[in-house]
Simulated assay, not measured.
Amino acid sequence: MRGLWPGQQCEVWIASATGALDLAYSTGNMLLEAPNWSLDGSSLILNGDGKLWRLGLADGSLAEVPVTGVPALNNDHVLAPDGKTIYVSADDGHIYRAPLAGGPATRVTSDDGSFHFLHGVSPDGSELAYVGIEAGDFTRAGRLVTMPSDGGAAAAVDVGPGHCDGPEYSPDGKWLYLNTESFSTVPGHAQLARVRPDGSQFEQLLASGTVDWFPHLSPDGSLASYVRFPAGTQGHPADLPVDVVLVATDDWATPLQTWPVSGGQGTLNVNSWSPASDRFACVAYPGREQPAAEPEARRHPGH
């Protein structure tokens, strides 16, 4: 489980489509990751110390969401469209469903020999999209999988041989957006892509020299955010100089805004857009930035 290094800070920021970047919360006591924005617009849901936390945007209060019956959580958690349910990935490799107000969690994935890392819930709430890691072996490529949100048979979606991550549904449910190494022979060179849920029309969104992860569409579908790692990065490690990037979904090649931060892992792992599609949240971790060329393990448990 990740924690802050001595002298390191955790900063939760709100990025605006206008270019503003406003600090919502800062702490040197706990490493928070991967904000989701609540459907009522009042708070962010983050993970830290294996638990879920609610950050009130009006007063900056941080309170635990008391989810029970689940192992320590990682940074893959997504809100259901009803605004009352959250799906979470835990360190036992399974996905659970829990009330966003707190309460007992229910496991939805089966013992199929894989670790399951959730990233998407369909707009109608009926389906989940996740990354499957066979036998929890992080040297193996992650595979794109969908399944019914209440449990049941999983279906693989073919996006080539390269490692993929971050699959989430478009607001209309017609696409899955993700990052993948299938368009390159260079190890770790993730690029942004999309595919139909039935596996058809797999296509690259942006061809770049950087390592691009976690595309997140705004609720109205007009904008997207993603995190850009330095060229040569393998996996999505922590504590690197990265860029949080904003684009229009009709032109992925032309950034509308770019914000350099110290981060990577935990900065933008899940969709963090506001319901109004005008802002999104991200996390920075200043105080222990590594050189971009420092070697890192290829895969990073916690996803």
Rank of each mutant, 00 (worst) to 15 (best):
V261P: 00
A284P: 00
G69Q: 12
M147F: 10
P66I: 02
D59I: 12
D92K: 06
P295S: 12
F183V: 06
N47Y: 02
A297E: 10
G41S: 14
E181I: 01
F183N: 03
G264N: 03
A153S: 14
K174L: 14
V88N: 01
Y226R: 03
Q8P: 02
R140S: 14
A80T: 08
P301D: 03
F138C: 12
G103P: 11
T109W: 08
P215K: 06
D212L: 06
S149L: 07
G221Y: 07
Q234F: 15
D239K: 11
G221I: 12
D137N: 11
L128T: 01
S149F: 09
G69R: 05
V227G: 05
A141N: 15
Q191W: 02
L100Y: 03
L55D: 01
D239H: 09
L256F: 09
P291G: 08
F117R: 09
G69S: 10
M30L: 14
V245M: 00
D22T: 13
V78E: 03
G56L: 06
S38R: 02
Y226E: 05
R279Q: 08
G3P: 10
P123D: 08
L44A: 04
A193P: 05
D158C: 09
M1T: 15
F138S: 09
V247S: 01
S122L: 06
E289M: 09
S89C: 08
S274F: 01
W37F: 12
L217F: 08
V247N: 03
P286H: 10
G287V: 08
I14E: 01
D22W: 07
G209P: 08
R279K: 13
H163K: 03
E64Y: 01
A190I: 03
L62N: 09
R279N: 05
L192D: 00
Q191H: 07
T106M: 11
I133M: 11
G264E: 02
W5A: 15
E168M: 14
P260F: 15
L100C: 11
L31Y: 02
Y96N: 09
P171S: 10
Q257F: 13
S42C: 02
L268H: 01
S200W: 15
A281I: 01
A135R: 14
A284G: 08
Y169V: 04
L217W: 05
Q8A: 05
P260Q: 15
F202V: 12
W13T: 05
V67F: 04
A238Y: 14
C10D: 00
G60Y: 05
P275A: 07
T18F: 12
F202A: 09
L246M: 10
L268T: 04
A72P: 13
S225L: 05
A72S: 15
Y87C: 10
Q191I: 07
P215N: 13
A20K: 15
A17R: 04
A284D: 00
